[in-house]
Design a protein around this nucleic acid. Structure first.
Lengths: 156, 156
DNA sequence: GTGTAATTGAGAACACATCGCAATAGCAAT
DNA sequence: ATTGCTATTGCGATGTGTTCTCAATTACAC
């Protein structure tokens, strides 16, 4: 797990395309690597190393090593959703940023452009360049926010 | 480490005040508890359990248990700064939210009110109720953002 | 096919956090 | 002060997530 994902995301449309990019970088297409890539291509949501290992029958160690390599070279990324294991995803078909509900675990993926106004406001007020790729924007999803405010009203 | 800090923060001005609140809740003021509280009162920045244990000579286990109790009762909180251990702080003298630089580790603490405009925009656009207490708003501090954009300009 | 280096499996090790349990020590009541 | 109840402690074991070591294997270039 790379500490700070400073790596330039790589663009690739499908597995064959990703493999071409691998070859350019003297990375081999081993069975293990192909299985990890396939699983990530098939995934709708970010997956933990454990899930990838179970799904593929690979050693957990090997999964971690492949994920690390893929991250280092800009193929993949991980995101932290609350406590619990990091979750991995491919970035080749476009970067995503996340909103995460700390109450129910709901994850909403956004195009970076959708967050530009928020980022802008933060930049202007605090000078920070915000990114919600590695640590998502945490809080309450609409449903949980409503539930919480109803509960507060009842308690009062 | 409580998974989701749903606990109402408690108000207390100093150690004596905190102790009064402890007593109300049938919590004892043991030597260990007092040492943890004192260290947290003295701290300028959120501290890891390890740091608290070293500083106080207490068992790491005992520190974790006290932190857990303090969190459960609304005295303390923890925040996640990148990878690495959770870091604990008292909330009695007012809640804080955080901006965290993933490049240099700089942490900026803000009054929740200062983030209200940002929260507002997020609420209007996405319906999410954002909180930067448990997972800070991550990104680049002004200095690192500038350094990065200069580097990008040079590379181009 | 052969050589070379990247990669793998298998297990140990590591970092952070929690649990079990007998011994200890706060605090209330006397 | 003493006693009794029970929260809390020390200490070791355990759990979860991740990385390391190293000999054996395998992808890929030639």
């Amino acid at each position: 797990m790379t500490e700070s994902p400073d790596v330039e995301p790589l663009a690739f449309a499908d597995l064959a395309d990703a493999v071409r990019q691998l070859r350019k970088r003297e990375l081999r297409l081993t069975t293990a690597r192909r299985l990890v890539l396939e699983a990530l291509f098939a995934a709708e949501v970010p997956l933990s190393a454990e899930e990838l290992a179970e799904h593929s029958g690979l050693e957990l160690t090997s999964v971690y090593r492949n994920l690390e390599t893929l991250e280092r070279h800009g193929f993949a990324r991980h995101v932290h959703l609350g406590h619990g294991p990091g979750r991995y995803l491919l970035v080749g078909r476009g970067e995503r940023e996340y909103l995460y509900c700390e109450r129910c675990g709901q994850l909403r993926a956004l195009e970076p452009a959708e967050l530009e106004p928020v980022r802008d406001q933060i930049r202007k007020r605090f000078g920070y360049e915000a990114r919600f790729t590695h640590f998502p924007l945490a809080g309450r999803c609409p449903a949980c926010a409503q539930a919480a405010s109803r509960a507060a009203a009842t308690a009062a």
